[in-house]
Design a protein around this nucleic acid. Structure first.
Length: 424
RNA sequence: GGAGAAAUGGCAGAGUGGUCGAAUGCGGCAGUCUUGAAAACUGUUGAGGGUCACACCUCCGGGGGUUCGAAUCCCUCUUUCUCCGCCA
């Protein structure tokens, strides 16, 4: 969430940013927020004055008791009782106002970076880079869900039986290829300086709020009501929350973490051909990279993350492109996002396999993730994350693009991880 | 799951109803001394709100209560430790 002080002092910038997101009724919301903040501070000031008086009286009473002047003390007691009633009311209205303000702040998305293109939908995203040769496949080439069946490496029906749609079972070489990809990605990430961590796959409510999945994406997460825990939709949640309520020293930057986790998404409302096979799942594997950065360095860090993901796709020899998301297609919490898409030759379309974002201090504000700056003051850090990489669509692209009449040729870099170079 | 103990500032650790945002030690930072460093000495050192700046307010695991007044008493939740039970 944005800082109230920032909104108060930069209303025009905020409105301009929201306009880029095609955000409806922006000015009304911003004005309401600023008003709520002003009211909150007014109440706070009034309450503070009352408490100050009450504190002073209590001290006086203490002294009077000590010196034995109990009658005088009793008179003061009566006064404080009155004050207490009033301050109780004020405390309540302060709480209400603070909650109201909080609710309003939760509704305001992050301000897009200058270079975010205008636009309303995915069609308006800007292709900033493209690389890799799109292979010409033999005429009997198949989409990955057919290949999965043909070689018996992924069983969607079996997953249906055990859990439901969107929970595939990987078998044999398919399962091993999954494991190979995970290890390969983790090795690449750690070689690039990201510390590997293993984190919980369930998180509490505070963590959900910390990274912004709550309250706005409540319905997208699986929720265990009994213990009030959420299955993570991405490793971003537990990994970034490592730094919730943390004040870093300036020399601790940069913080670079990588984690493999399964990801769980309800994907309520998805349907159609675009969710076939591995295209959209309720459970999938992903290796994530997360960085905590000094504000001065976060965009440099974003570039380096983009280059890192590039290098992986180059090694895998996959045709891919990089999109700079437009205002209308960007996530709620992001200031700048680059999506990576792999071309799926048999489906003749691009599949999103990675999303790399700078959240600036939007998440940090909720997380209370700060650092001591050179003046010794606490300042919000910047958070970034990206997939490096999400498995299912990499696998889909790989199966489709690497198919030959003899079978699926495994990219060279993966062979040491799999122990085989052909699926047939 | 049962029984007991505990949770205080970066860390250790005092504080059981009144000038306590909190002794003391360590650590950190700044200075003195030194060619430099160490040692020693001196000072400084939590977070948030608020203010032009002060003042002032809130916070001693979370929430609630008693009281004129709570780190301190009561209730509750969470977490940690010890013992027992169960167990990959």
């Amino acid at each position: 969430m944005l800082q109230v002080a920032f909104i108060r002092e930069n209303k025009e910038i905020v409105l301009k940013g929201l306009a880029k997101r095609n955000f409806k009724n922006a000015e009304e919301l911003v004005d309401k927020t600023i008003a709520a903040d002003e009211e909150r501070r007014a109440i706070q000031t009034e309450l503070d004055a009352m408490l100050a008086e009450s504190n002073k009286l209590s001290k006086d009473i203490g002294m009077l008791f000590k010196s034995g002047e109990t009658q005088k003390a009793d008179i003061l007691k009566k006064k404080t009782v009155q004050l207490k009633d009033k301050s109780k009311d004020l405390t309540e209205s302060l709480q209400n106002k603070a909650n109201e303000l909080q609710e309003l702040l939760y509704l305001i998305p992050n301000i897009p970076n200058e270079i975010v293109p205008n636009g309303v939908s995915a069609d308006d995203n800007l292709t900033v880079f493209q690389e890799g040769k799109i292979p010409v496949l033999h005429k009997d080439a198949l989409p990955h869900w057919e290949l999965a069946k043909k070689y018996d490496i992924i069983d969607f029906e079996l997953g249906n039986k055990i859990a439901g749609a969107g929970f595939p079972v990987y078998k044999g070489k398919g399962a091993k290829l999954q494991r190979a990809l995970i290890n390969y990605f983790l090795d690449k990430n750690t070689a690039a300086g990201y510390d590997e961590v293993q984190v919980p796959h369930l998180v509490n409510e505070a963590s959900g709020f910390g990274t912004g999945q709550l309250p706005d994406k409540e319905g997208q997460m699986y929720h265990d009501a009994q213990d009030n825990l959420y299955l993570i939709p991405t490793a971003e949640v537990p990994v970034t929350n490592i730094f919730r309520d943390v004040i870093l020293k300036e020399d601790e930057f940069p913080i670079c973490k990588t984690a493999y986790t399964p990801c769980f998404r309800r994907e309520a409302g998805s349907y159609g051909a675009h969710v076939r096979g591995l295209n959209r799942l309720h459970q999938f594997d992903k290796v994530e990279i997360v960085r905590i950065e000094h504000p001065n360095n976060s965009y440099k860090a974003l570039d380096s993350m983009v280059n890192h993901v590039k290098s992986i796709l180059q090694e895998l020899n996959m045709p891919y492109r990089i999109l700079r998301l437009c205002g209308g297609d960007m996530g709620f919490t992001s200031a700048l996002t680059y999506d990576f898409e792999v071309f799926s030759t048999a489906q003749d379309r691009w599949l999103e396999i990675s999303s790399v974002s700078n959240f600036e201090n939007f998440q940090a504000n909720r997380l209370k993730l700060r650092f001591k700056n050179s003046e010794g003051k606490s300042e919000l850090a910047h958070t970034l994350n990206g997939s490096s990489l999400a498995l299912p669509r990499v696998l889909a692209g790989l199966l489709e693009n690497c198919q030959t009449p003899e079978g699926i040729k495994i990219p060279k870099v993966l062979v040491p991880y799999c122990g085989f170079d052909l699926i047939n």
